[in-house]
Amino acid sequence: MEKETLYPKLAEIVNNIETVVVGKRKEIILSLTALLAGGHVLLEDVPGVGKTMLVKSLAKSVDTTFKRIQFTPDLLPSDVLGVSIYNPKTMEFEFRPGPIMGNIILADEINRTSPKTQSALLEGMDEGKITVDGITYNLPKPFFVMATQNPIEYEGTYPLPEAQLDRFLLKMKMGYPSHEEEIDILTRAQHRPPIEDLQPVITVNELIVLQDAVKNVFVDETVKSYIVSISERTRTHGQVYLGVSPRGSIALMKAAQAYAFIHGRDYVVPDDVQFLAPHVFSHRIILRSEAKYDGVSPQDVVYSIMTTTRVPIRR
């Protein structure tokens, strides 16, 4: 996969981000995939591994507005969406947009806030618009949310329900850097934070054009059938309590289109599907309690399904 040449403009973005984020090419490409597919990303990892850095550098590279929301238990929906304030001069209520009104949003520790606030954000993610005081405001395009959550601390958290996890196109982890990479990180940290120097390489309009192009990536019937086979098997798998919904299948196809586009192809190959399936499906599957006690993760299930699902090799 690594050897495949990327679409030139996107390669620039990746290279740009890589000047800041060390050794996270796969995660960068996954983020770009979600961005191009018009989806959102749920980043699940411990603090301090570069989640924010990734999102910031991505936002900077695309020359968009970047907003960050730090979720806390006492955060209110209006703190996210914005609030109408009475302007004594004009004698009118004036809408003050909240931090959601940006192109790229970092929703930090999304599971720390109350479900009410969470749903305010998630509604916006799903529909691309928000309603405040009866007035509907369209969110800017592109609209891309990267939400993070900490898998270690569960005290005082409000885990996202399955229906809301569904809003995220894919879920990924950052993971710790390797020994050499971490040395590299230390070296870079001695100087001025490099993110300050990051220059945008693509405009918002160009990004929208690319997003439209992604929709035209060809998905052959055999590959669609392959996607559906995998989804179906999650529904009948012995360790799975709730399998992947058709919306999950759509998500996988869209992600695969974006991923193929990033790699300069105008068609999806089964490899794209195989690469993305664990990220797209793992948060859409609910395992049986027995499987959880056995230490089986949703990724394991998806992997085991893929090793036994026949890959189409002819039309």
């Binding site: 190959v269 089964p270 490899d271 893929m306 090793t307 036994t308 699902t309 026949r310 890959v311």
Partner: peptide
């Protein structure tokens, strides 16, 4: 070629 292996792999 095992069942789940793509042509590329």
């Amino acid at each position: 070629r095992e069942t789940g292996v793509t042509l590329r792999d």
